[in-house]
Design a protein around this nucleic acid. Structure first.
Length: 467
RNA sequence: CGGGAUGUAGCGCAGCUUGGUUAGCGCGCCACGUUCGGGACGUGGAGGCCCCGGGUUCAAAUCCCGGCAUCCCGACCA
């Protein structure tokens, strides 16, 4: 076995993360502070995630739109909590065309305001509701401490914005996105089990009535917020006058929601599954599911034939015929990049009528008959997908500890305790020690309700250190 | 914004304390050859506003002053 090319996770997890992002060629820092250059392999991951999210967003009835990058500053001032929450991290354009602007423009940190302004004009009667929009965009938040993918000044995301006739419809939408779009993609595609819950008042989105979240657990025991869905109540509808005439002819204010998932999840994918040999990609999200490695020039034709058969079987596959590079170099490269299966086709294999199959998730190697490759691998990919989710779930469950007292909270993982034992003051005390309430769940693990008449008394808090 | 550190080849670094000829090393890159079933090796080669500006000096990567930038640790966040 070659010497490790990465800092071991156990030695220094943040360093390991930086190493993997660099060595797997996911991204590098941009010239301007906090910006990142997403490289082909990293962008391919994002495109897979995008595709899965986009399909589900559309399947649940939403249409894609695109709103401007620049937003008049004045828009932010209309919603008190929103401006307070976002002002510190706004990038503001003060000059254009060589002149100072009379009205400064904010570079969008999120688009509730511009989209709210348009909704107010687009929605007139109840037949215009619900209005279900989504946009894929870049946003800018002047972050104090950037980290590739996890927290960058500019990042890519989708942001959904919807308007409804009633509170209940807005609440249903908020949870439908959480469960049917986000949780499904994270669980079934990224193989990351997530806690679905509601944020505390301290942690909710500025301007929201309630914020729902999906919290994943990384391999170092820290939590990562992998997506949020907000019921905005009538806060933005009031600020931007989003109103409609109902069936009875009465003028009523709408209820809105917003929800987003960003390139942060790429970082989450890395940290949820990666090991000391690099990335481990679940097959569903892997840009390449199988690499057929032709060991020698002589075996290139066989490798290409196998790849063609796999492609016909619906597998994302590439032949590595860079025989000018050593075998070890190439094997390590693909392991760093996390490709789920590597099919080694060497002279000895071909002579025996077989190929050598290496699994990235377990490291196991086995022989597979050449004629059976196309028939066997798709099923194996499904098995790997399931095994990776099971593995992540086991790690998560093993790292979730029930505590009776907040003082017992110490170390990695999730700590679970009744919210009543914590409360707003307990939450603040935990924050001083670097722990946050990641989310609140019902006693039986369900998603808590929202709304003004909700009762938080019986809820359970999940506490962890977070990225 | 506090605390710490660093800017020298694409990347990672040495050299600076005690100024002195063509500024080194590893990786990577290019060429050729031998290799190549777990990050191969040999030979040859290319590649430097030594962060920027000013100063001291016969002479500055090295000393002095000023600036800029980045990284790490905290508070903010998808």
């Amino acid at each position: 076995m070659a010497a490790s090319v990465l800092t071991p996770q156990s030695a220094d997890f943040p360093r390991w993360y930086q190493d993997v992002v660099a060595k797997a060629e996911l991204a590098e820092t941009g010239a301007a502070r906090g910006t990142q250059i997403i490289k082909p392999w990293g962008y391919a991951l994002w495109e897979r995630i995008q595709g899965e999210l986009d399909a589900r967003i559309k399947a649940t009835g939403h249409d894609n739109v695109y709103f401007p990058l620049f937003i008049p500053m004045e828009y932010f001032e209309r919603e008190a909590e929103h401006v307070e929450g976002f002002s510190p991290e706004l990038a503001v354009v003060t000059h254009g065309g060589g002149k100072e602007l009379t009205e400064p423009l904010a570079v969008r940190p999120t688009s509730e305001t511009v989209i709210g302004e348009a909704m107010a004009r687009w929605i007139q009667g109840h037949r215009d509701l619900p209005l279900l929009l989504n946009q894929w965009a870049n946003v800018v938040r002047w972050e104090l401490r950037p980290r590739l993918f996890l927290r960058t000044t500019e990042f890519l995301w989708q942001e959904g914005h919807t308007a409804h006739a009633t509170w209940q419809e807005a609440q249903d939408e908020t949870l439908r996105i959480l469960v049917e779009v986000y949780a499904e993609v994270l669980r079934d595609v990224l193989a990351v089990p997530v806690l679905l819950g509601r944020k505390t008042e301290a942690e909710k989105f500025p301007g929201a009535e309630s914020t729902y979240t999906l919290e994943g657990l990384m391999r170092d025991g820290k939590a990562l917020q992998m997506g949020t869905s907000h019921n905005l109540g009538q806060n933005f509808a009031t600020a931007f006058d989003i109103a409609f005439t109902d069936e009875s002819g009465a003028r009523r204010q709408a209820w809105t929601t917003s929800w987003g998932v960003s390139t942060r999840v790429v970082g989450g994918l890395v940290m949820a599954h990666g090991d000391d040999r690099g990335l481990r990609l679940p097959p569903a999200v892997a840009p390449l599911q199988v690499v057929v490695l032709a060991v020698k020039d002589d075996t290139i034709p066989v490798a290409q034939r196998l790849a063609a058969e796999l492609r016909d079987a619906g597998v994302r596959v590439r032949v590595d015929q860079r025989t000018n590079l050593s075998f070890g170099r190439r094997a390590v490269d693909w392991e760093l990049k996390g490709v789920p299966l590597r099919l080694e086709v060497g002279p000895r294999d071909v002579a025996a009528g077989q190929a050598t199959l290496a699994r990235r998730d377990t490291g196991d190697k086995s022989a597979v008959a050449l004629h059976a490759v196309a028939a066997q691998l798709p099923g194996l990919l499904d098995a790997i997908q399931a095994a990776m989710l099971d593995g992540a779930r086991e790690r998560r469950d093993a790292a979730t500890i029930d505590v009776a007292d907040p003082d017992e909270i110490d170390g990695p993982g999730f700590f679970r305790l009744p919210w009543a034992q914590l409360g707003v003051e307990g939450e603040a005390r935990l924050a001083e020690r670097g722990y946050t309430v990641r989310c609140l769940l019902t006693a039986d693990g369900g998603i808590p309700g929202g709304g003004p008449d909700r009762d938080d008394a019986g809820l359970v808090a999940y506490v962890a250190k977070a990225y």
